[in-house]
Design a binder for these strands. Structure first.
Lengths: 157, 157
DNA sequence: GAAAAATATATCGCGCGCGATTAAATCGCG
DNA sequence: CGCGATTTAATCGCGCGCGATATATTTTTC
């Protein structure tokens, strides 16, 4: 029965929504000079962690489906940052490997994280704490999404 | 000089990015039954707060530009939730007004906030604290974006 | 070993977010 | 009043995120 305020600024989700845009706008000029979008940057970072990952594995790391990742990877391939090849051991899988150019980005983005941290005006322990809280929130919501996935039609009252 | 980890899960921005998607997926089935997308829902909430707002005012509230808001409002108009009309006092402005159908949504979404709160598995004070922290973070980044807007070309080095 | 089920990726359409640009109305300054 | 500057929306193109679906490969089952 506890009345919930139907005001935009009351919503945590709205805060996250607008914060996400603020980060994208912050990254834009930093990544433009490398010819990367923010999601493309995330894929590159994922590949630095795990070069040769499959399309599905990259999607798993980024919480995205193949219908998003596949075209993104094709653009990265066209730009010369990655190579795409079928896995001989399982021809269903497509293996994504960084090119020399893809590895070279690692040096070129070296100052980016520092710049982003500076923009937040906070220290690292504080940012890590906040990150952990948001990850926990995300995981709780994702778990809820899965647990209710079967009974969508009865959600109303 | 302090070395920053170039790992996906280290990034606060990545946490925000994935949390934003988790929220969108959470809202999807709740809003589908009303024929609204999540950004459309935000616009409707903004109009409950301020019916008759201009396109620019709505963009201001949602941190969006007219090139995003205009087509979104046209879709809401087509769906019958809002009316769009020029402001007679200033013909440059387009005034957005909720229709009866738009106001009626207020009752139909009554259970949505509660459902979202439940999904987070947290209590209201905790959520409000987190929301305030994220808003502060967003505002810090947005201020930084503005303050450095003029000297984008020298950010390297 | 052949058919059925499961898995991995790709394709298509649509809505959003935004940079760049355009068009129209208003404002300001002489 | 007149004309340039400013303000407000709208348009266009592109990349992303995703639901729905298709295709190809592998695994399972009988």
């Amino acid at each position: 029965m506890d009345e919930v305020d139907l005001t935009l600024n009351e919503f945590l989700c709205f805060a996250i929504y607008t914060a996400e845009h603020a980060f994208t706008r912050l990254y834009k000029p930093l990544l433009d000079r490398l010819g990367l979008t923010y999601p493309q940057y995330l894929v590159i970072v994922a590949l630095w962690e795990e070069d040769g990952a499959s399309v599905g594995r990259i999607g798993e790391k980024l919480f995205l489906e193949s219908n998003t990742v596949t075209p993104l990877l094709k653009r990265l391939e066209t730009a010369g940052f990655v190579r795409r090849s079928r896995n001989p051991a399982d021809e269903r899988q497509v293996r994504i490997q960084l090119t020399d150019r893809g590895w070279a980005l690692r040096k070129e983005v070296a100052d980016v994280p520092g710049c982003v941290i500076q923009a937040t005006g906070r220290d690292l322990p504080d940012l890590k704490r906040l990150r952990d809280e948001i990850c926990a929130l995300r995981d709780a919501i994702a778990a809820f999404n899965i647990s209710t996935a079967g009974r969508r039609t009865e959600t109303a009252s």
